[in-house]
Design a protein around this nucleic acid. Structure first.
Lengths: 223, 223, 223, 223
DNA sequence: GATGAATGAGCTTTCATTCAT
DNA sequence: TATGAATGAAAGCTCATTCAT
């Protein structure tokens, strides 16, 4: 078989386990409760940013959804923009976990490619709200923070490009394939998942990941 | 060969020729000039909406880019939202031209699929700014107008789904392909072109279209 | 005597007692304070609309009169137009109280007429600012709301017309009186009170009401 | 009979004959045409101010009604406010004609009163649009011009008050009548005519004038 | 005489943010 | 912790007015 999965489990594609659901250190109850509430704010904000967009969501909306007045959420956050940044950063960090692992693996290029497509697709589907922010709302961040995100995305793209090129050199990918275009095609596909995926749909996040990588690999490999 | 192009030329993928650039009828210069300036406003707005997003672009920005005060652009438009809608509608109308033609053709399903991918990709690339509005800024339109756009997109998706299903029934597409997921994958790919395509890049809009359809068909067809 | 008052007191002619001036229930101080401030906004706006007209009064004017910035008054109201409507509606509602009572009474037509003139005149004089809005600024309201007001006015006019006609049939009003014109005359007289009445003037609102009805009845009754 | 009309004809109640309809002096055709067009502008503006109010009428509205662009009306007028002022002044001047004549007459006070009511009512009805400006839109004029109008109105009021007082001294008016209030009542009645009078209605302007004075006199005179 | 184009001032409204309580 | 109240900056839009052509 051409491609086998690098990892046994798909655990990485799941949302970061909420640090507050794991049993907390005994004392420091105050701070814990505040922290828990902060996560709530983040969650609510993520959902609203996803549904209406960052600009169209007001602090009042967020407050109301939490049973608070708009001014009150500033007890938990420092600014609306920080809210967005924090969410994007979380997604970014989660992304890094599986990306670094795949990068470090010594599997064949096409195996790594298949793995990244599978996992990234699943990850996007599993983190619907945050991923939409990562892909569409990042423009509302200030320049410096935009750059961070673009840089991360570029790393993924460069890796994929590299893998395809290697596979092409090895004769595993059709020689006439335009590698850069193929890379763009792959990410267009993978990154669009948040637009239509619904957790209660016909397919699980993992199934979508598997199907997508099948499609891509089918289009690339030399016969 | 499995697929031949339906049409000889790719003319449809090109932006509507600006009616003002074609030599105008001798008289009626007045109205022409005003119309020309209106097109300028639309163009400038399209570019700014594309670059910064609709919400982040102020009427002041648009005015300044034209050497006008913010209030002055209302000589040419009726509201900022109308500006967006007009742009989106233009794109939508252009889209319809080639879509109807392909729909009406009696080519084989996979031929139609290849054609749509090719032309739609090229069209997106050729109308960079407007297509970004069609795919990302439409959420700033009021509900009724959003529905128009979603409806148009759905028509394209349904057609593609249908074609793949027919090809699958005929044994031309792998039996284990999830048609809906494949459809989503295709549109994710095609619609993402506006994010990276640059007119002065390595490839022309048409080349990208051709390459993309090659990739997709390669992933779908039974061997 | 031809006419005796239907009611003993003239209480109805007095402005609705501000619910906040009556001793409030012990707790719930918060909401009271906000409500009280909202009433202040309404009062200030009423006075300014009265003095300069609705269109000529800016939100900035209203804010400044309250020691607020223009944007700040939106903490208490939802729009400038709503401010006007609320004021007009209050007047309208107060009006209804005495109008329904008189309508329901089984006094003789001329007695009811005298009563309405008396009370409506006094009511107009007692609610100077609001009545000016009801009579002159209502045109700034949207069509639907204008209709409400016109409808209410028409009810009063129809009632008066009806009473005069009945009295005429009974021989109590000169046979050659044009009832419709007389009705217009009466309302012209009564509704103009807000133009010159001043609370600190020679006459009380009630005195004016009594005098006006005397004049009208004198002009109408057959000798 | 108590009151006989001072003048034979009611001509004064009619709108000033348009100076342009009378045969114009041979030459100066240019200026005449311009002047005629100016009157058109005034007429259109008067009608619109009457219907929607001065503030709610835009120069664009006026222009459109004349088949002109908004900027073009400035060929005929110097400002929107001047338009209003000119109209109000015209009404004011027409008013003066009959007022001075009555003032100068040596008829009995009640005769003069009856005459003023009759003529002023008819005049208001005959000059519907301008009178509405005189009575309601004058607040949009600058302070100095407002004063002119108030002064004119006051002259009328003072005269009426004076006449009633004289008649009261002579025993012709009930001793217990509050003269000032009666005066206000009269003007409230007379000045409200523009609110409901329609040229194509049941009654002519003159009939309304006669009826109104009958009513008032009936209410005032001692029996 | 009239237009097309633009100005500039002002308007209503929204909203993220602050802060004393 | 959360509220009530207010800020201040900016937004979209309107409109009387100007002026070269």
């Amino acid at each position: 078989m051409l491609c086998t999965s690098i990892t046994a489990g798909e655990g990485e594609a799941v949302a970061r386990p909420d640090p507050e659901t794991t049993p907390p250190p005994a004392r420091a109850g105050r701070r814990r409760k505040q922290h828990a509430r902060r996560e709530e704010v983040l969650d609510v904000a993520a959902r609203m940013f996803f549904e209406r967009g960052y600009e169209a969501t007001t602090t009042q909306d967020i407050g109301a959804a939490l049973g608070l007045l708009k001014g009150s959420i500033y007890y938990y956050i420092s600014s609306k923009e920080d809210l967005l940044y924090e969410l994007v950063r979380q997604y970014h960090d989660d992304t890094r976990v599986y990306f670094e692992r795949i990068l470090a693996s010594d599997a064949a290029p096409l195996v790594k490619l298949r793995e990244l497509i599978t996992v990234e697709t699943a990850h996007t589907a599993t983190n619907l709200t945050k991923s939409s922010l990562f892909y569409t709302e990042w423009r509302s961040l200030p320049a410096e923070r935009q750059r961070e995100i673009v840089a991360e995305r570029t790393r993924h793209e460069k890796a994929v490009e590299q893998w395809i090129r290697e596979a092409q050199a090895a004769g595993d990918v059709r020689a006439d394939t335009d590698v850069r275009l193929a890379t763009f095609a792959i990410f267009g596909m993978v990154n669009s998942v948040y637009r239509w995926f619904r957790p209660d749909g016909r397919r699980t996040a993992e199934e979508v990941g598997a199907e997508f990588s099948e499609l891509v690999l089918g289009g690339l490999v030399a016969r």
